[in-house]
Structures are given as C-alpha cells and as structure tokens.
Design a binder for these strands. Structure first.
Length: 271
DNA sequence: GGACAGGTGCGGT
DNA sequence: ACCGCACCTGTC
C-alpha cells in the first residue's frame, strides 16, 4: 500500500520523535518502523510525504493509524499564545492510533524510564517474542509474550517492571482488552489502571495512543514543567489534567502532545 | 563512584 | 486521601 500526504500536515520527525511510538527510526532520510505486523516506511518527496507499507492491510486502516482524516488546524480555535506557539513548533504532529496491546506493554515499560531506553527494550522484546519477518520482527502477540519468563524480561533490561509485564500480558491474553473500546472515558481509564504497572499517567497514554481517546491528558514531568512555567498551574496530576480539559476542551490530549514536544525542546529540567 | 532521571505499588499515616 | 520510599538501568 502506498499513500501520499502533504508534508505541512505530516512531519515524521515530530510524529515519531515525540514519545508516542517506539519502533520508528530515521535511516538516511527515510523513517522505518513496524506497526500492526507490517513494515512501514515514510519518506519526503517534493512537498509530500510518501507512506509505504508491506502487507495486506488496506489504505483505510492506515488512514486511521495515522489519523489522516482529522484536520489538526481546526482543533483549538480559541488557543492561547502558549498553545499557538507549541502548535507552530510541532506543525505536522499527528496522534497515532496504535494497537491496544502494544500500547499497553510499551507504556508499562515507559514508566519511570527514558525514551531512548524504552526504544531499546521494545526492540529487544520484539526479537525475543515477536514474529520473525526476515529482517525485522513484529510486536509480540499476547500469548507469545506469556511464554516469556520474567528472567528473560529482566535480561533485556525491563528491570523491576518484569512482573508487571508478565501479569498484564497474561490478562490481555485472557481477553481483558477486548471490551474496553466502547466504554466511556472514565470507565476505560479505571479498567486500564487495573492492569499491573498501569497508573494514572500510563493509563492516559494508553487511552490516548491505543484507543484514540483525545480527552486523556497524561501528566508527566515535562507536562508538569510546562504547565507550571508557562501556565502557572501547579498541584496534583488530577487537578492539572482537569485544568487542561477545561482550557483545551475535548481534544486536550492532542494539546498535551504539542506541549510535551515543545517542552522537551524549550524547557530545562531545573525549574 | 555516587547522584540523578523517570511513574507505579505499597505500606504507613 | 495523601506521603515517602523502593524499584532498575543508563548517563553524567
């Protein structure tokens, strides 16, 4: 499958670099990654970006994966100066609609962890338990991940999250992710937090990136920093998220991604 | 070599 | 309901 998009609304460096997905890397001007068991390549061509995929999934599914039918310029008609600047800086960002199981496991790994290390662990996890596609590996299926021991998980650098991954994979294999898609947002969040290793922040990431729930507003240290430094909002994660939903509306989670990306490039750890 | 970054779970209050 | 601590690994 091949798909062409204007690069003004699709910037792979932002999309794949802002911490929502961990399997894409740039290689001599082409972004390569794996999603839904297919190899995906993204490269600039004139004023466009060309997306190529390796398997049977139809264009419709990839349009959904890349969220291509949403106009990101219309999301925040009453944006304040901070969000406007973050949006300009992150032009071409899109929220990927990723596989719920892959999102669950990847973001349990992300807890108390750094993007670079998360990438390495996820890649080794795919080699350990994912389907071998020749020169690359798919993300493991739940039952395959269940056959991996906690020691094997520790050996690839997962650390103390090993029992969380094992338990959550077990529950996913037992079908516990199946009935979440149509739940109201608060219920989905509560259900996700029942998985081991999933707290408020990780639940919001899974809801946003794995279930397309743009109400979810994950509060991590970078979002905390930007909310404090640029909005003068401080306090617990819940009150920050509540403030964000009142200010940014139903798509606060997309605002969060713009702000997160902006914060990581413009703010320091200090203040 | 020691401090630190990064969320969650747990035991204490 | 909230607080303080332990958890694992990579980097400086």
């Amino acid at each position: 499958m091949q798909l062409r998009v204007a690069e003004t609304c699709f910037d792979p460096a932002v999309i794949f670099g802002c911490g929502q997905a961990f399997r894409f890397q740039e290689n001599e001007g082409t972004w390569e990654g794996v999603a839904y068991g297919e190899k995906v390549t993204v490269r600039a061509d004139g004023g466009d970006v060309v997306i190529g995929t390796s398997g049977p999934l139809p264009e419709k599914q990839w349009r959904a994966y890349f969220d291509l039918d949403r106009d990101y310029t219309l999301l925040f008609p009453h944006a304040d100066a901070v969000l406007l600047e973050a949006q300009a800086f992150g032009r071409g960002l899109r929220i990927l609609r990723q596989d719920p199981f892959e999102t669950l496991i990847s973001f349990i790994i992300s807890a108390n962890n750094h993007i670079g290390r998360i990438r390495g662990i996820v890649e080794r996890l795919c080699v350990l338990a994912g389907e071998d596609k020749g020169s690359w590996f798919a993300f493991p299926q739940p039952d395959a991940l269940c056959r991996v021991t906690e020691q094997q998980l520790r050996d690839i650098g997962i650390g103390y999250r090993a029992p969380y991954i094992a338990a959550s994979a077990r529950r996913a294999a037992d079908g516990e992710l199946e009935y979440l898609a149509d739940m109201p947002w608060e219920d989905l969040r509560k259900e996700l937090m029942r998985f081991e290793g999933v707290g408020p922040k990780v639940a919001d990431c899974i809801a946003l990136f794995g279930f397309g729930r743009t109400e979810a507003f994950p509060v991590d240290v970078w979002v905390r920093r930007i909310m404090k430094q640029l909005y003068h909002v401080d306090g617990g994660a819940a009150s920050i998220a509540g403030y964000a939903r009142r200010m940014f509306g139903a798509h606060a989670g997309i605002a969060q991604q713009y702000l997160f990306h902006y914060a990581r490039h413009h703010l320091t750890r200090g203040s």
